[in-house]
């Protein structure tokens, strides 16, 4: 009836299925290429610097403001019950369990995911990736493995750093309002955090970092159609990463709560 025989369900759904399969293949290729001998240490350190250290100013500002504002906004509700002394533990639980990994990852997805997508996308459309391939250098190893590893290593470190900066912001707010000293604040804050909280935050941050690196690299590595493709790759690096980060967040929270 004039229907294209190559279309299985509909063109758009077919594309999504193919994209999903290609994404899974990309992840499988990553793990098959992952070995100590394939890691290019100078490039890995360079990427850790690009992803980690260069994100610090933005992460510091966001973490500090998050802790400060969260404390400020939570105070009136707690004041109604005369429970402002619970502020340190409330902020600590919120920062460590959810806010720090999530805020760090969303900031990193915006900064790092788009950067990786655009960089690899531009390398793809200007044949720089093909140039690596024809000179006997494995571009997947050099470009993808090192970037994904760097993101997987640095995002957890940045997450705990964000938690520390957020708690500092919160302490300043509490000190100015309740004159609580630093020792009392720290004891109160950490009293409510257990290893499960730290463990789940670490697992989440590792998964978030891996997602940001992988999605950014996949989008860039498969960019097509010139500069338009580069823009799409940068955009996909952010949007898809954030979407997957939220899915992981929901999943890990369910698993962690079932373990409590």
């Amino acid at each position: 009836m004039g229907k294209n025989k190559d279309v299985f369900i509909s063109k758009q759904i077919d594309e999504k299925i193919v994209n999903f399969k290609n994404g899974v293949d990309f992840v499988i290729t990553f793990f098959s290429e992952l070995s100590l001998k394939n890691i290019i240490w100078t490039e890995l350190f360079n990427q850790c610097y690009q992803i980690g250290l260069r994100s610090l100013p933005l992460i510091t500002l966001t973490g500090f403001v998050t802790g400060l504002v969260f404390t400020q906004q939570s105070r009136p509700s707690l004041q109604e019950f005369g429970a402002t002394s619970w502020l340190p533990s409330l902020v600590a639980i919120a920062m460590v369990r959810a806010l720090a990994p999530l805020v760090t990852s969303i900031i990193a997805a915006g900064r790092v995911g788009s950067n990786i997508g655009a960089e690899l996308g531009s390398m793809k459309v200007t044949e720089q990736i093909a140039a690596m391939e024809v000179s006997s250098v494995n571009p997947f190893n050099f470009l993808v493995v090192n970037r994904v590893l760097a993101a997987t290593i640095t995002i957890p470190i940045l997450s705990f750093y964000t938690a520390a900066v957020g708690l500092t912001g919160s302490f300043i707010n509490i000190y100015l309002n309740e004159q609580t000293n630093f020792n009392a604040y720290i004891i109160n804050a950490f009293d409510s955090i257990n290893f499960l909280d730290l463990g789940s935050a670490l697992v989440k941050a590792i998964l978030f970092g891996f997602t940001i690196g992988m999605v950014g690299c996949y989008s860039g590595y498969n960019a097509e159609k010139g500069t338009l493709g580069v823009g799409k790759a940068a955009n996909a690096g952010v949007v898809k990463s954030i979407f997957i980060i939220f899915l992981i967040e929901i999943f890990v929270v369910q698993v962690t709560n079932s373990l409590r």
């Binding site: 200007t126 720089q128 140039a131 391939e133 024809v134």
Partner: peptide, 16 residues
């Protein structure tokens, strides 16, 4: 590929 060189149309130099 160590024995075959390829000069690309747009040179494909690594920008970074």
């Amino acid at each position: 590929r160590l024995k075959v060189g390829f000069c690309f149309q747009n040179s494909a130099l690594y920008d970074s």
